[in-house]
Computed example of a mutant assay.
Amino acid sequence: MHKYLLFDLDGTLTDSKEGITNSIVHSLTQMNITVPDNNALVHFIGPPLKESFRTDYHLEGEQNEQAIAFYREYFSTRGLFENEVYSDIPELLSDLKNAGYKLYVATSKPVTFARQILDHFELTDYFEMIAGSELDGSRSHKADVIQYVIEENHLSPADCLMIGDRKHDLIGADMNGMDALGVLFGYGSREELASYPHIALISTVHSLRQFLLTA
């Protein structure tokens, strides 16, 4: 049985599409890059920004850093609150905690933003630890964040389950020797998640609750 549950943030606990894509639009506009429709930027949700700016717009070095700075300029004041908690997530977290699970957040988002978001939505107290990347770009890969949670809390990977909506969550869990569960109400498709190690793919928060509390 998994005693420790690690949750991704964007696309797993909250629907952050509006804030993240608006922040990307702001960044691209400031960089004088043609801006696509917000819906065409959803794939930015999950992976490290540095990688996405490099892959999509070939931004390297100082240009990449500047694009991230413009992103944060918008996100830190507006974007992080253009966000909403998925329905029934607070109840799920409460029930899991009451059932004896220890809960953690493992996100590639800078931890300072993750804390602000979780504080804003009054979710912080459900979690033993909120782990993420640093503003200097360190610990931005999901595998590194998961490893940090394990080491800081002296957890056994065999007792842990990573819950997330993108392939990075499943890959990061596998690299750390733990099971992973993919959720389909976020931003990763079934086709994406099915290609990586997982114990289940879950379509709704209600089904996630049933899986975790009746397994």
Rank of each mutant, 00 (worst) to 15 (best):
H2D: 11
H2A: 14
L5W: 11
L13G: 04
D15Q: 06
K17W: 10
I20G: 03
I20K: 02
I20Y: 00
N22R: 04
H26P: 01
Q30G: 15
N38M: 12
N39S: 05
V42N: 07
V42E: 10
H43T: 15
P48A: 01
T55C: 04
Y57N: 04
E62S: 10
Q63T: 05
N64S: 02
Q66H: 10
A67P: 02
A69T: 09
F70Y: 09
E73N: 11
E73I: 06
R78G: 01
F81G: 01
V85M: 10
P90T: 13
E91I: 13
L93P: 05
L93T: 01
K97A: 11
G100W: 11
K102W: 10
S108P: 02
V111F: 09
T112Q: 13
R115N: 12
Q116G: 09
L118V: 15
H120E: 05
F121R: 09
T124M: 02
Y126W: 12
F127H: 04
F127L: 08
I130G: 00
I130Q: 00
S133Y: 03
D136C: 08
G137I: 15
R139M: 09
R139G: 08
S140Y: 01
K142Q: 04
K142N: 00
D144S: 06
N153P: 06
H154P: 02
S156N: 12
S156D: 10
P157D: 06
I163H: 01
G164F: 03
D165F: 06
D165R: 05
R166D: 10
H168P: 00
H168C: 02
D169F: 09
G172H: 04
M175S: 08
N176Y: 07
A180E: 02
L184Q: 06
G186Q: 13
G186Y: 07
G186D: 11
Y187F: 15
H198T: 08
I199E: 08
I202P: 14
S203D: 15
Q210E: 09
A215D: 12
